[in-house]
Amino acid sequence: MKKRVGVFVCECGTNIAATVDTERVAEYAKTLPGVVYATNYKYMCSDPGQELIRNAIQEQNLEQVVVASCSPRMHENTFRKATATGGLNAYMMEMVNIREQNSWVTHDREQATRKAQSLVRMAVAKALRNRPLQAATVPITKKAMVIGGGIAGMQAALDIAEGGQQVVIVEREASIGGKMTQLDKTFPTMDCAA
């Protein structure tokens, strides 16, 4: 299992760097089994940040990428794409959440840094066992349902319909219109609501 792992520690401006010593985390990462390259950078999600990852994949011959930054719910796709354009399978990338679940919820710099180190250690261990995955495809039923026929529902339905797609509006009252139909003139134009 001698895979070549690269670790990229993001500072997110000061969002992470203010509480986590990112340089120390990167230095620590270099001591982990399998890690051949580690660095920290101000904004890993930025163009130069992604370029850094792509170059490292090529130059260091990386087989796995670990990005320690914000939540994967935020930028997992960004870094998967960067990994893929760097020449690896998009799923050879693990994220470490050192922002939402570390730097933003921890006050003490020493504690936060040590937490980041152990989170990176866990992610590297997981990344070493990553396998390339291929996405399958499913067909899309091109018909939308709008639940609620008030202003929001009618506007969304009209825009979808104008875009050439089928829409069903489900409204629990016997008429569409919602609260809007109960209103008189509306601000700031004072035109009629209906």
Binding site: S71, V105, T106
Partner: peptide, 14 residues
């Protein structure tokens, strides 16, 4: 939810 806690900067044990 843990992300949301972070977004709101709610501190908890490290």
């Amino acid at each position: 939810a843990a992300d949301l806690a972070g977004l709101n900067h709610l501190e908890y044990a490290a």
